[in-house]
Design a protein around this nucleic acid. Structure first.
Lengths: 121, 121
DNA sequence: TTGTTTACTTAAGAATCTTATGTATATTTA
DNA sequence: TAAATATACATAAGATTCTTAAGTAAACAA
């Protein structure tokens, strides 16, 4: 029997919609080879448990990014189980730059709307 | 005959998904009574044309926020045409505070992931 | 041995958005 | 003055991205 308890403070915000690809690209670009489960744990760590990447979002996203030629995948047997390691491609690096630029623009635009007084840069 | 030309630099990013409610709440809370079309123009101004709120997203969103009790609506005839002015309710002000807090958390979490070196605050 | 963690997969449904279409009046331009 | 554009709202169909849920399977802890 399983009882799931909603962790206080864990994010349910819709704002993360659209940011998953950017997060994956950045982490894999920076760390090199990572596998799916590792990405979920790394994000949980970095955000102090605030953001939990769901498997139902993560894995289809990884498959799509591989299909797009932004990531490569290599299956490795570790402890008698399969892990799929993803690494960034040159096209993936370009995509990372673009996605991070988009994120910057998004942040700047939200600042302009939410805090117009600080937006004279 | 209509020819639509894609404006260079206009955002097509998925990052804005989930931010519309926050944007509307903040603008109406700050400016007082606003009507839909006015909101699209204000956002366009503030972001220098970068972000165009689509009518297909805006109007259903306004209706939903009214149904939720976060906004009130008053129809007024201006220049022989109907405008629907939306204003914030007390519940809407609470929601605004919550949404802005969520936005802050989102920004902080993205910083922690994208730029971990700057995240020791 | 029961439950939890690790590790991946995928289908169904929800939420939010874009695109497209429609209505209608006012204003600008050719 | 006719045509096009701007103002102003509404909504249905489809796309995208996510959550929820169910499944498989092995390692590990209680």
């Amino acid at each position: 029997m399983y009882i799931y308890i909603r962790i206080l403070g864990m994010s349910t915000s819709q704002l993360y919609r659209g940011s998953l690809t950017t997060i994956i690209l950045k982490l894999v670009e920076e760390n090199g080879e990572m596998y799916g489960y590792e990405i979920t744990q790394r994000v949980k760590e970095l955000t102090q448990g605030d953001l939990e990447i769901k498997e139902g979002a993560l894995y289809p996203s990884l498959h799509k990014m591989e299909a797009a030629g932004h990531l490569t995948v290599t299956a490795k047997k570790v402890d008698n189980r399969i892990r799929k390691y993803y690494d960034i491609t040159p096209a993936g690096k370009e995509e990372t730059v673009n996605r991070l630029a988009e994120l910057d623009e998004f942040l700047a635009n939200m600042q302009r709307i939410i805090n117009p007084k600080l937006s004279f840069e």
